[in-house]
Amino acid sequence: MIQKNPPNKEIETFLQSTDHFIYHTPLFRQFIETSFSCNYQLICSYEKDKISALLPVVKITSKIFGNRLISVPYQEYGGFCGDSSTLPKLLNFIQNEHRKGTEFLEIKGSIIPKLNPSDSLCKKSSLQKADRYKRFVLPLSSEEEVWKNIQKSKRKAVKKAQKAGVCRILTTSDLNEFYKLYLENMRRFGSPPYSKQYFINFFEIIETKGYGKIYGTFIEGKLASALLGFTYNKRVHITTAISNPKYAAARPSDLMHWKFITWAIENHYQSFDFGLVREESGQFEYKRKWGAKLQELPSFFLALKTQEIPTLLDPSNNKYKLAIKIWQHLPLKFTELMGMSIRKKLGM
């Protein structure tokens, strides 16, 4: 049996006995639905009247970009949790329900590598695998051990930043200053920004439950950098890192990373996930210097109408590169007004 969005209590009981991350939870569904006004479906398969597997999915509709299903949009990771042998049932259900009017299903790589579909499961389920990104994950042990494995230049940068600035956890009172810096960074990156309401929801729904936090480094009383991460099930996943180039020489970004890492160690977290990265990007070397381990991060596609793996959001796509260059030159207010609607249509 397959059921969409069964009672929260059933889902929470199932999650207590299986490895998963925050995007599998009803709480995260609330966060995304509140932020993007979408229908975040937790599709569950059942064995003997109990949930055996769960796949979070959102349908993204756009006249320009087409209609598709994504697990999970607006985040770096996705995929199912539970018994992998029931995944074909879930995919068959999706195929039958969305065969008309939907181009494809994208299942993003899991934050838990063992939950990614195996090659045999891909073949059985007609999933196409795409390798576009890698990820850096830092295993956490003692503070001394982690510090020892950080590259010497990075340790020196942390010490320099400790003399120049102060790092602390941000609160809603810091939101205006944080969001202004965030907008400036997103334009510089050439990427549409989230709305301020997204971060208000983060504080109200996620942070208050202890499932996320934002660290910020202040220099001369000004916010010089900030780092947002989800903190769930003994894993920290960093999703947003911003900084003011004016203070780059003081290395505020290194200080906030180290503060977040030490917090995670003190609270017995097992890993600090720097998030996805492209091998040719500047972030690749930055994340490597922290002693993090490079891991594969494949995505999986199930054709519904189209037979080709989409390339619209592939960083190697020339149209994607052109869109970045155009966005970098738009007025800041325009990016704020249009960013969230574009993200919603792209599912990014």
Rank of each mutant, 00 (worst) to 15 (best):
P139W: 01
I70L: 14
E285A: 09
T311G: 13
L297E: 11
K163L: 13
K289Q: 13
N8H: 13
S253F: 12
K108W: 04
A226N: 01
W327F: 03
S341M: 06
E285R: 10
E76Q: 05
N185P: 12
S316T: 14
G82C: 08
S195N: 12
L332Y: 00
L228R: 03
K321D: 01
R343F: 01
E97Y: 09
K48V: 07
S125R: 08
H268A: 14
M186H: 02
R188I: 00
I169E: 15
K259C: 09
K319W: 11
K222E: 15
Y40L: 08
N116M: 03
A249W: 10
R278P: 01
E143C: 07
T86I: 10
V146N: 05
I238K: 00
L140E: 08
K124H: 09
N5D: 15
I64C: 05
L330K: 00
L181T: 00
I238R: 00
F178K: 00
N185S: 02
I309D: 14
G339I: 02
M338W: 02
N201T: 03
A303T: 10
A303C: 13
Y77V: 09
I107Q: 02
P7Y: 14
I70K: 10
V158E: 10
C44K: 02
G101W: 00
I169P: 02
A264H: 07
S316A: 14
R68V: 13
K213Q: 12
I219S: 09
M338S: 14
F21I: 12
L42K: 08
K123T: 13
Q295V: 06
K134E: 06
K108V: 15
G78P: 07
P113A: 05
N176C: 04
Q16T: 10
T240P: 01
F272H: 11
K163R: 11
Q328L: 02
Q283V: 12
F203K: 04
R29Q: 15
L313F: 11
V72C: 13
F272S: 09
A130N: 11
E76M: 04
E144G: 11
Y194H: 15
Q162D: 11
A303I: 02
M1G: 03
Q151G: 03
L55C: 00
H24W: 12
E76C: 04
L276I: 09
G339C: 09
Y198V: 02
I324M: 07
N201F: 03
D254L: 04
T306P: 04
L55G: 01
E76K: 01
H24Y: 13
V137R: 07
F203V: 03
S173K: 10
E336W: 02
L105E: 07
N8D: 14
